[in-house]
Design a binder for these strands. Structure first.
Lengths: 108, 108
DNA sequence: TGACTATGTGATGCCCTACTCACGTAGTTG
DNA sequence: CAACTACGTGAGTAGGGCATCACATAGTCA
């Protein structure tokens, strides 16, 4: 595999990695309804502000989110609508697995 | 956030995590052309067999891949076509970022 | 049966990530 | 200015992921 292709996979992996955590998935889901400040996000996902802040910075860095300041608050929002399609695909996979599990169990 | 919702996010994160690595992305891409044995996968992605074997088992465990034995070889394949849509979405995000970067640079 | 091939796996070391605490900073409000 | 709020971040720690080596296993073929 040539270096350029490898580099491309690294970039893709960075994006996927940005979503590969329960809290981060919950944040993305929450933001799909519209922009939110850190304190509301923190309360919604049930994690400490400092922790949420770090997760947000990871997603910010990898280009999944963007933010703006509004007085004291910092408002985060999804940067691309693509990321939601992304999650739909994950749901598809999960449903597919569930159906398969059920098919196996029905033979009992 | 109630425990069931949280559990659901954990399941989703496990699937996303299964794809969140350059080698694993390369493997998924390679398998989109059809099933392959470990040795061919290993050669294609340019990683040691033992390492590839571990990556494969991770994706197998999280339901992204499936496998069958054929003589000495073990043949791996994608379990759900959904996972390819998944990667298309990642490409969308990447392209989106690239356009944005280019838009910024064009102002030089 | 003995040599060989393809694959999986325990053990190890290293590095990265996630979480928490404590503190600093920026902005608001009285 | 003083108190307060919202947020980010350095330090420290625990845990997990990844790559590698060495070895075990299963199957093939002469």
């Amino acid at each position: 595999m040539d270096p350029q292709t490898q580099r491309l996979y690294e970039l893709k992996a960075q994006i996927v990695q940005a979503a590969a955590h329960p809290i981060r998935l919950a944040i993305i889901d929450f933001l799909s309804d519209g922009e939110q400040c850190v304190c509301d996000i923190s309360e919604h996902v049930g994690a400490k502000r400092s922790n949420v802040s770090r997760h947000l910075s990871v997603m910010l860095k990898s280009g999944v989110l963007e933010c703006r300041k509004d007085g004291l608050k910092v408002i985060y929002s999804l940067k691309t609508p693509c990321i939601l399609k992304f999650l739909d695909c994950v749901n598809d996979v999960l449903r597919h697995q569930a159906r398969q599990s059920q098919a196996v169990l029905s033979r009992l």
